[in-house]
Design a protein around this nucleic acid. Structure first.
Lengths: 208, 208
DNA sequence: TCATCCAGTTAACAACTGTTCTCTGGAATT
DNA sequence: AATTCCAGAGAACAGTTGTTAACTGGATGA
């Protein structure tokens, strides 16, 4: 199924990736709606007009960044939710995974948090669509759990959205604490753990 | 204590308010980091240089907008949390209040949601500071409740932050559904109600 | 009444923006 | 070997941006 790309296609993808990387770096201290096309090409070291060979606009680039940041995250979420163990272990493992992901891809996380409610509509919609997918996947995993017996589909999806939002809030907190001392990062871990713990208590007493 | 402003000061405040209003309108479909100084003065109908009589920069204007959007909200939050009645009534009343606030000040809510993680650091910090205040106030109200007996300060603050974040999530959902049919708005109400309900269940079983 | 103050104006600046059209040189196809 | 293709370059466009300096004229306070 895999086909070795020609020299031409390979070089094009390389340049395209350079655009994505440069944009992500530039977006560390500004929003997508203020990101200029020339600004990006300058950072890549390429002529302004080359931009159009890859994207229609910076909004288009933004949508591509959403796919890069969230597209490859679905397997991780599925396995995280479906991990075995008691509630405490699962919560600790989930938060650990979030913290690690923020450490590894801080710029991606920042981009998603920033543009989720940002000024560029197509990007907002792309993020929303991905988060809806996450919620549906989490719901599917939750449904497998024996604890979900007696739960309606609506309630499962409600809980799934709560988890997804909480995941984003936690990621955002870890991001803010990226340059902070270990003590502060530990504080965030404790906070997120107890919040998830409280939700899990609410979950186990939902019926009756 | 109140002193009638001179004609001069009164006119200045009027212009200043015109800047805030115009900026808020322009920020409906862009982020603060892309808001131009000239863009705002053009909307107000005033010379570009007049801007500097009121603000150092658009970031400065943004901080002023944070105060306008959140500064006057504290009394409302306090009374909402401390309202009498059983859990169900309090939750319904809180969500009703949020929905009404989003209807009344949609631009303010959009601004806060957008710039909370936006590209302008001073504005992010101003919002964060206000949200911390909200959490502390909610915590103080929660502490009065007999249900809070046996809770540590840390746990109360943890719960307060959970409530504040949930409030923002709900407000953002209502905002997205502003132009939607009543059916969709009802869906949001149902979702937010059950999420708050689950949290309140977790709260009541937190100890033991 | 007269001098001071100051919100807003006017003009000008270099620097920047997105987009168009034309061109080039090497890869891809025949 | 000859032809087509196409990622990127180059130049030019009309508009825009933030910031400066020097100004005007009505409100203010002595």
């Amino acid at each position: 199924m895999s086909h070795t790309l020609g020299i031409r296609q390979a070089q094009k993808q390389k340049t395209r990736q350079a655009f994505l990387d440069a944009a992500l770096a530039l977006l560390e201290d500004q929003s997508l709606s203020s990101l200029g096309l020339r600004e990006v090409t300058r950072a890549v070291g390429v002529a302004p007009t080359a931009f159009y060979r890859h994207f229609r606009s910076t909004a288009d680039l933004g949508v591509a960044l959403v796919d890069e940041a969230l597209g490859s995250l679905h397997p991780m979420v599925r396995t995280t939710v479906s991990t075995a163990g008691d509630s405490g272990e699962r919560i600790a493992r989930a938060i650990e995974l979030i913290a690690h992901h923020v450490d590894t891809y801080p710029a991606h996380v920042r981009f998603i948090a920033r543009e989720r409610h940002g000024g560029v509509q197509p990007v907002r919609e792309a993020i929303r669509a991905q988060l809806v997918r996450f919620a549906e996947e989490v719901k599917a995993e939750l449904a497998k759990d024996p604890e979900a017996a007696g739960w309606s589909d609506d309630d499962l999806l409600m809980l799934a959205h709560l988890y997804v939002d909480q995941m984003l809030i936690t990621a955002s907190l870890f991001l803010e604490a990226l340059e902070s001392p270990a003590e502060e990062r530990e504080r965030v871990t404790q906070l997120a753990t107890r919040q998830l713990w409280l939700i899990s208590i609410g979950r186990s007493h939902w019926l009756g």
